[in-house]
Design a protein around this nucleic acid. Structure first.
Length: 607
RNA sequence: GGAGCCAUAGCUCAAUUGGUUAGAGCACUGCCCUGUCACGGCAGGGGUUGCGGGUUCGAGCCCCGUUGGCUCCGCCA
């Protein structure tokens, strides 16, 4: 008999088989289902790993049989008994333990359960209910598998990075507020009245300081916090695989990440990914796919047709070109029969919502071009267009004319939407792509200032550094890279600035004056004066990655206890009001009545 | 801050498009059943159709408001 130190159980519910027949064992778990035949009773006992059928015979032990009748779904029980081979014809090939069953000799109901508010075996639409009973939702196989998958991913990450000499180091959660970027979550300090910590948006500055410290290679499965509005792929707290290394160039980082992802796919999913991943520049990404996170699963590419219309009589195109704009076209091969007038109207709306004046199109039916604009094209233009776009029957062509980035992005969105409408996204494909050579800055007309595209610590391309002085900020490229999987931004990183002077220059361009630089980033500037090595790194969104790997549609499904759209945890009802005394200790006075004072003011209602 | 979608039994859904007493499966309660495995059978309980107002002879269905949930835009260095 197997010896066990455990009082409750000798095995888990997935592991018993014919090899164990005759053994006395003990199992614990939840009642997945009870099948009471009156004179014979089966219980499917479930734990995290699997299911074992338990059988109760009335004639062997009437008292035991009677107590088994008390069992209901989701009761937690402990069953002891003998493993027996199931009678011929009653084996269940659907489960790994289907050749045996546990013949019960004793039963202990460890805890009963109320009837569940929802069924565990069908998908639940009511997300509010799911979140408020998250501990039950997590019993469902799909979510359990997501958590297992997530664990396996972080396990491989730790294993791989450790093998490459990276050290896992924790950085502070109580950290410093630097109002660049996303809104901070603030934590009031009791010991420093009137002062606040901030929860880190990312361990960015700490990991750079670790490089100055000579740590050389760092990583962390890091929790990050951003107080911005939520989305299906955005939670206020999320997890990054955060990596930083010294004495590296862009290719070092990219290769590590490729190899790490390759191992994750191999060890977790059993899929062998080809490396290196595709690489395109930011400019190519917009030109060809109309997005800085292109979905390469979709075959259609955007093309520039400015040359076709260089002498056009078509007023709209002519004026756009005269203003220095571009004319882009997307040939959605074979899409025409699948998209009706309603579909076209939908895409037009989409284009308009992005600031386009309209969305011109040509529908190719056999030899005929159906379009509101073709009548303005000359025969020459039609011929050239047919050549350039490779037009064939059943094609559907969209045009976007305007400023380069807008024209590209409009067709980029049309491309994605159209692919969905026509089901042109192939399933079970994993298309990774690196997007490189991002611009360092972008101008915000709203704020009337330059902002970092990546973050202020990003290093400019060496050959563009001169332009920091000439003021051509929009021409400066960054040593920054994003990794994209199936059109989802998995992460991004850069080679960093490690010189005080260069960093100060960047801050100044971003409109952060010397005083404020010292106040917000003094620690970093100080560190750069003490032998900061060249360094760079990357951060990958773990939640999004696991979401894609598990086929989930929202990162809520790969986070154990996520928050709803308003940042509320429906299970614990946080955030919540706090006692007056707690606020007092934190030197905080509310601008509206506190819970305490409202409770005091409300007249007691006598029954 | 803006736009959209959704809300019917504990859960998943239906209700012939404005018409009599709002149904089904699962779950729940009781009874029957010795080889089931989503066991089966019989019987039963369970609804202010999210809430408030309006239109109408009549509203689950139409209109307005509101609450909650979700999706998208803004926002997310």
């Amino acid at each position: 008999m197997k010896k066990s130190f455990h009082q409750y159980r000798t095995h888990l519910c997935h592991e018993l088989g014919l090899k164990d027949v005759g053994q006395k064992v003990s199992l614990c778990g939840w009642v997945q289902s009870k099948r009471d035949h009156g004179g014979l009773l089966f219980v499917d006992l479930r734990d995290r790993e699997g299911i074992t059928q338990v059988v109760f015979h009335p004639d062997k032990d009437p008292a035991l049989f009677a107590s088994a009748k008390q069992i209901k779904d989701e009761f937690v029980i402990k069953v002891g008994g003998v493993v027996v081979e199931r009678p011929a014809g009653t084996k269940n090939a659907a489960i790994p333990t289907g050749e045996i069953e546990l013949e019960a000799e004793n039963l202990e109901i460890l805890n009963p359960s109320l009837p569940l508010p929802f069924n565990l075996d069908e998908p639940i639409e009511n997300e509010e209910l799911r979140l408020s009973f998250r501990f039950l939702d997590l019993r469902r196989k799909k979510l359990l598998n997501s958590l297992k998958l997530r664990h396996q991913v972080t396990y491989v990450v730790r294993d791989y990075l450790t093998s490459k000499g990276f050290l896992e180091i924790e950085t502070p959660i109580l950290s410093k507020s630097t109002p660049e970027g996303a809104r901070d979550f603030l934590v009031p300090s009791r010991l420093s009245p009137g002062k606040f910590y901030a929860l880190p948006q990312a361990p960015q500055q700490y990991k750079q300081l670790l490089m100055v410290a000579g740590i050389d290679k760092y990583f962390q499965i890091a929790r990050c916090f951003r107080d911005e509005d939520l989305r299906s792929d955005r939670q206020p707290e999320f997890t990054q695989i955060d990596i930083e290394a010294s004495f590296v160039v862009v290719d070092d980082i990219l290769q590590w990440v490729e190899e790490m992802i390759q191992q994750i796919f191999s060890k977790v999913l059993g899929i062998e990914l080809p490396v290196p991943f595709a690489r395109i520049t930011y400019k190519q990404a917009l030109d060809l796919y109309g997005s800085d996170k292109p979905d390469l699963r979709i075959a259609w590419q955007i093309q520039d047709v400015g040359e076709v219309f260089e002498n056009t009589e078509f007023k709209i195109f002519r004026e756009v070109l005269a203003r220095g704009g571009v004319i882009k076209a997307l040939n959605a091969k074979k899409a025409s029969p699948m998209v009706g007038p309603a579909g076209i109207a939908e895409l037009e709306e989409l284009a308009k919502s992005m600031g386009a004046k309209g969305l011109a199109y040509i529908r190719i039916e056999d030899k005929e071009w159906k379009s509101p604009i073709v009548k303005f094209f000359s025969m020459e233009e039609r011929k050239r267009l047919e050549n350039v776009l490779g037009i064939e029957p059943a094609d559907l062509i969209f045009f976007s004319a305007g400023p380069w980035d807008q024209a590209c992005q409009v067709l980029g969105k049309v491309r994605l939407h159209l692919a969905e409408m026509t089901r042109s996204v192939p399933p079970n494909e994993w298309k990774f792509v690196w997007v490189t050579d991002f611009p360092l800055f972008e101008y915000s007309p709203l704020e009337q200032k330059w902002n970092s595209v990546h973050h202020p610590f990003t290093r400019p391309c060496q050959e563009d550094i001169g332009k920091l002085d000439s003021g051509k900020y929009d021409e400066i490229r960054a040593l920054a890279y994003d990794i994209i999987l199936n059109g989802v931004e998995l992460g991004g990183g850069s080679i960093r600035i490690h010189e005080k002077e260069l960093q100060e220059k960047i801050f100044s361009i971003l409109g952060i004056d010397k005083d404020r630089q010292k106040l917000l980033f003094g620690h970093l500037l100080k560190a750069f004066q003490y032998g900061a090595p060249p360094h760079g790194g990357i951060a990958l969104g773990l939640d999004r990655f696991v979401m894609l790997l598990s086929g989930a549609e929202t990162i809520r499904d790969v986070i154990a206890f996520p928050k709803n759209r308003h940042g509320v945890d429906l299970l614990t009802q946080s955030p919540s009001e706090v006692d007056f005394q707690q606020l007092k200790e934190l030197h905080i006075k509310l601008a509206f009545p506190s819970l305490d004072s409202r409770l005091r003011q409300e007249p007691e209602i006598e029954p």
